[in-house]
């Protein structure tokens, strides 16, 4: 499943990093603790978080995550956005809370037998 498919199926908004919409999503991870994501997320995960500062892009890039989904209508900071464009790793946004979007992401990936 591509990042583009997540956007369509989950009704997400593309905030930045359009170049990466063809990246393959092979799983999901939800956490707001950066070291937890660093230690446990896997390559190809779509990462759900409420953090919006630039370090989320460092994590996404170092871990080769597919995309970041920022919850509750939070808007990523300017330098975060710039980094997403530069790295071609999409940041997607939703008004939903972490609980809801994580649940829907899990259902979707499960229905496609990805997780």
């Amino acid at each position: 499943m591509k990042v583009q498919d997540l956007i369509t199926r989950l009704g997400l908004t593309v905030h930045s990093g359009k170049e990466g919409l063809e990246r393959e999503v092979t799983g999901g991870y939800t956490s707001d603790l950066l070291s937890d994501v660093m230690g446990h997320a896997k390559e190809g995960d779509a990462w759900v978080t409420l953090q919006t500062h630039k370090n989320i892009m460092a994590i996404a890039s170092l871990k080769d995550l597919a995309a970041i989904i920022v919850v509750k209508g939070h808007v990523p900071e300017e330098d975060t956005t710039a980094e997403s464009e530069k790295e071609g790793i999409p940041i997607l946004t939703t008004r939903e809370e972490t609980f809801e979007i994580t649940g829907r992401l899990y259902e979707l990936l499960k229905s496609e037998q990805i997780v």
Partner: peptide, 16 residues
């Protein structure tokens, strides 16, 4: 508040 300082840094270093 930034999501750091959860006491996982050194253990992550040890594991990796």
């Amino acid at each position: 508040e930034m999501g750091f300082g959860a006491g996982m840094g050194l253990p992550n270093m040890q594991k990796n």
